[in-house]
Simulated scan of single mutants.
Amino acid sequence: MTAPLVSLRGVAKRYATGTLAVRGIELDIRPGDFLALLGPSGCGKSTLLRMIAGLAEPTAGRIDWPGGTPGPRDIGFVFQEPTLMPWATALANVALPLDLAGVPGREAEARAAAMLARVGLQGFEQAYPRALSGGMRMRVSIARALVTRPRLLLLDEPFAALDEITRFRLNNDLLELWEAERFTVVFVTHSVFESVYLARRIVVMAPRPGRMHAELAVAAARRGEAFRTSADYAAHCREVSEALGLAMAGEAA
């Protein structure tokens, strides 16, 4: 069996205020996974994501990388908001991680332009964030996270603020990128429907302190509109909804 990319053992996080955000997290993230963390607001999903990224330290337990400690280019992070530099073009925003890594200017620009094309923004390289729609700004953010070809892509409810049509389109685009590149994904969401459509594994989390309530597999060979409107999709959504309901009620899995 392939060793996990990331292994979490007994992970907990208590803030200086005394709030216990998450506790007792036992989770293996395998290479090529598309894993969704599903739960209500305030259950510690984002806290867990930040600890995996190394942006916060657990107060108990450990996070191991059996394949080797990640470097700055090994993790891509997409926040809830695009967090783009408003004074920089789309091309410059995407090239930023490469610039910081010392990649020569022409190479960085070429790689950034290629990644913008991959997310459907060819022709918008010189556009500034203010001239882009919300969905386009999120595409730039995803391109920036992927331009270093990270081993692990972490996404913190990136599509929550978008309209449904744009959200569906970006779901499909993200899946297309993942299927082509097979990087590892951890995707935070509070949407049952989004988690079932995107993920191959879903971790359902209980309210604060965040705990793993259940882990469910979604074994659909291909995503797409045929899957979204299928009886199989509806059945998976029902199963995940029931697990989330039990988690919210504080019942045992």
Rank of each mutant, 00 (worst) to 15 (best):
R23I: 12
T47L: 02
L216H: 08
M248Y: 14
A217H: 15
A112I: 00
A145E: 06
P97T: 09
R73L: 11
F227H: 05
A214V: 13
N172M: 15
R118K: 15
R200K: 13
D232G: 14
N172A: 15
A206C: 07
L100Y: 13
P70C: 05
T19M: 12
V185T: 06
Q80W: 02
L153G: 00
A12V: 11
R23Y: 09
I52R: 02
I52G: 00
I142M: 12
E157S: 05
K45F: 02
A60L: 04
A253H: 15
P97I: 08
A249H: 10
D163A: 12
P72F: 12
E251S: 12
R211V: 10
I202A: 01
E194W: 02
A3F: 13
S191W: 03
A217Q: 15
G67S: 11
I52D: 01
P66D: 10
P66H: 06
T184P: 00
E107T: 12
Q80N: 06
A226W: 14
A234G: 07
V119M: 04
L8K: 09
R23F: 10
L152A: 03
T2K: 14
L8N: 09
P86C: 07
M51I: 05
G76F: 00
F79R: 05
L155P: 00
E194D: 09
T184Y: 00
A3T: 15
P86M: 07
D173T: 11
P158W: 01
A226H: 15
A113S: 09
A112F: 00
D173E: 15
A3W: 14
A249K: 12
V218D: 03
V185A: 04
E164L: 14
L20Y: 03
S46V: 03
T189Y: 01
F124D: 03
P4T: 08
A220F: 11
G250R: 11
L246H: 15
E239C: 14
I142A: 11
L155H: 03
V119I: 09
R211D: 05
P58F: 08
A36C: 10
L177Q: 07
G54M: 06
E107G: 08
V103P: 09
G135L: 04
P209E: 08
G123E: 00
V203P: 00
Y197L: 08
G120R: 01
A231Q: 13
G42T: 10
Q126W: 11
A243G: 04
V147C: 02
T229S: 15
T148E: 12
Y128C: 08
L48K: 00
P72N: 14
L162H: 09
H190V: 06
I25E: 11
A114N: 00
V78C: 10
N172R: 15
L49N: 02
A113Q: 06
E109Y: 07
V6S: 04
R208S: 12
A92F: 05
L98R: 04
T166G: 12
V103T: 14
P158N: 09
A12I: 10
